[in-house]
């Protein structure tokens, strides 16, 4: 278990990649929150504002062939892995051009080209699927790692223990990523978990616990963990402490959680670091923000223009 320090030697290209993906997730989530009350999206939304660094730092090290299995809070990690924004938007709008053709909704996203074999809305279960991907790689299906991505509340489900146990017994190329936002809906971790997540995981595999609001720290730790899993050193566990600024579901802020931008905002922290080390100018940051806004405008336009799925084509 390590508490790694941000890598101040990160290259500008890498830092820009991280910033761009985090901004894409943040601004998309903010736009969803803004549009949601108009009912254009007939599907629940589980936003991840404040948690962008975890998926972004992780996915920086994943390849398209690596298989990422997600839970219900899925928009951000899916975008981080490479799901095209217009396919996400079209799915939220319930259109046939959505990544699941309108059959999935916001919690069931798929992008086989970018290593997203599907996401699930039952907390915990998808942890096992990432282990299955690792087992497939071990049995010769290809050169990839399986990644199980879940929250702190999922560690209370039996499938969490069962999955870690099996992955460790067989030394599978699997990465477990726990996005610990400290809440199970409205129940704080102190009330939902008697166990210590890192303590349980580290009994079975190498485990790193990091500040999940610091994308450079996540990027660092994920880089090491992914390369160990890829290199045949068995499963690895990443515990990322983060904050969920919004309610469990819906477009509103969560009043149970205190947010201090200086301390908690992964985007603010990265931009400050990049500006202070001369990687970006304020102008470049502003340009990036507006470029992403245009991208979101285009994705929404695409979704609005797209046809709704035809019920007559729905086969039994």
């Amino acid at each position: 278990m390590t508490d790694s320090q941000p890598n101040s030697t990160i290259r500008r290209d890498d830092a820009l990649w991280l910033l761009r993906r985090m901004r894409l997730i943040r601004q998309t989530s903010e736009r969803i929150a803004k549009l949601y009350p108009t009912d254009v999206m007939e599907t629940p939304v589980h936003l991840c504002i404040g948690q962008e660094a975890v998926a972004t730092g992780l996915c920086h090290h994943l390849r398209d062939e690596d298989k990422l299995f997600l839970g219900h809070r899925t928009h951000g990690p899916a975008l981080a892995k490479g799901l095209p924004l217009e396919k996400l938007m079209a799915e939220l709008y319930g259109r046939s051009t959505g990544c699941s053709h309108g059959y999935g909704g916001s919690m069931h996203l798929l992008d086989l080209e970018h290593g997203l074999p599907g996401s699930s809305a039952i907390v915990g279960g998808s942890i096992a699927l990432g282990v299955g991907a690792g087992l497939a790689a071990e049995l010769g299906a290809g050169h990839f790692v399986g990644v199980s991505y879940f929250g702190d509340a999922a560690t209370n489900a039996g499938v969490f223990y069962e999955s870690l146990n099996f992955a460790a017994l067989r030394a599978l190329p699997v990465l477990f990523v726990c996005e610990d936002n400290g809440f199970s809906n409205v129940m704080p971790k102190s009330e939902h978990s008697a166990h210590d997540i890192v303590g349980v995981a580290s009994q079975m595999m190498p485990t790193a616990s990091i500040d999940g609001t610091d994308v450079l720290a996540v990027n660092d730790a994920a880089g090491r963990a992914v390369s160990r899993a890829r290199g045949g050193q068995g499963p690895q566990f990443l515990h990322c402490r983060t904050k969920r600024w919004m309610k469990h579901q819906g477009p509103e802020r969560c009043d149970l959680i205190e947010v201090d931008i200086e301390r908690d905002c992964p985007i603010h922290k990265l931009e400050r670091f990049m500006a202070s080390s001369g990687m970006v100018t304020p102008r470049e940051l502003a340009d990036l923000r507006s470029a992403i806004e245009s991208e979101i405008d285009a994705a929404i336009e695409f979704a609005e223009r797209s046809p709704r799925p035809d019920p007559n084509l729905m086969e039994a």
Binding site: K67, F69, G118, A128, L129, G132, A136, S163
Partner: peptide, 8 residues
């Protein structure tokens, strides 16, 4: 779930 993940 492991079997499903392997099938996928």
């Amino acid at each position: 779930g492991v079997a499903l993940g392997a099938a996928l």
